[in-house]
Each structure stands twice: as structure tokens, then as C-alpha cells.
Write a protein that binds this DNA or RNA. Sequence first.
DNA 1: CCCTGATTCGC
DNA 2: GCGAATCAGG
Length: 200
Amino acid sequence: MSWTDERVETLKRMWNEGQSASQIAKELGGVTRNAVIGKVHRLGLSNRVGGKDEEEAAPAPAPAAAQAARPEPAPRPDPAPRTEAPRPAAAAAPQAAPVSNVTPLPVRKAIIPAGQPLPPQPSQNEISPEALASVREVEKRARKLSLMELTERTCKWPIGDPATEDFWFCGLPSLPGKPYCEAHVGVAFQPMSARRDRRR
DNA sequence: CCCTGATTCGC
DNA sequence: GCGAATCAGG
């Protein structure tokens, strides 16, 4: 693969968006992150974009507005994480355990996640009680990663309400080849017959 | 261990 | 110019 104008453009765009070299490499394909980094340097956009003045000791008068280019980590948008997840499950509804964890949760926006109609809610059908308990336990220890902190080795199970600040991804080590950690794989991929009527 | 960018240097 | 190997860190 060579650095065609198009590929270079993608490289610049992603780099300026704050994407990591490895992510860019994956996106482009045919190159390693080293190649990306090398190219980045050759292009002279090593450091964050803007590249204008680089005051270190002098904060400078800073007209403020001038520093509009401060992308850093993208906020919350970006509903298209090509990470591809089978059934992200709207969210872990049955997680508001009144046990200890007494999170204030003042934000109870009635806003509906702009994502999707969210109808295919796997809901808490008859998931193995053990698995469910395990999930609750795991979610207490979730690493609470943001969308961009996810990698191919982190659990991408969403926790919380996407419409509020109380939203993050599990982030625990995912099973090899799976998008979720052991506990979440358990509730995400059900054999289809694993639910032997719990009778209730 | 996973990841990040930075640098070097043979090609 | 390119990028693997390596370095230096988190």
C-alpha cells in the first residue's frame, strides 16, 4: 500500500480527530501503526493539530476563541463505532440495585436515546440466575470506559443510560474473539435453549 | 500485559 | 519516502 492522496487525507483527518495511530492504521488497512506514526511525522503534524503557536511557559494572552481546535476526545456523539456488536442490548435495565451503591442519579432525563427505536430489548428474560448475578457483580467493577477507550480486547457492554452522564462501557477484558467479557457474553449470546423455564 | 507516540536507520 | 524495530512511557 502506498500513501495516496486519499489515504493521506484520511490519515490527517483521523489524526486531527485525535484517533490513535493504531486506530488509523486499522482503518486504512495495509499499514501498521508504525507506518502511520512515521507518516505523521514526515507530514509534520506530529503534535496535535493547530500547530500554530506552541507556548509552553507562557500561557499567552489567549484571545480564547483562537484555540477553537481542541478536539481531544470526542464528546459523546459517534454512534457508529464500527466495532460491530451483535446485540448491545439497549442497556442494563435491571441494574439499579437498591442495595448499597446509592448513586444520586439526579439526571433522569426523559429523553429517548437518539440511537434507535430500541425495541429488540433482549430484556431480562430467563437468563441464567448465575449469569445475571455475575453481571451485576461485574458491573460494579466495570472499568467504566468511554466509547473511545474501547479496544478489541475490552468488553463493549453498555451500562447505564446513553442519554445521561451515567453511561459507560464495561471495559473489562473481553473474551478472545468476543466483544464482551465473560459475564456479558453469558447474557449476550444465549444458546437459545439455555433458558429452561424458570416458571417464576 | 495492554496500550500510546517518538525515534532511528536500513532500504 | 517508507516503516520495522526499538525506545520511552502510561
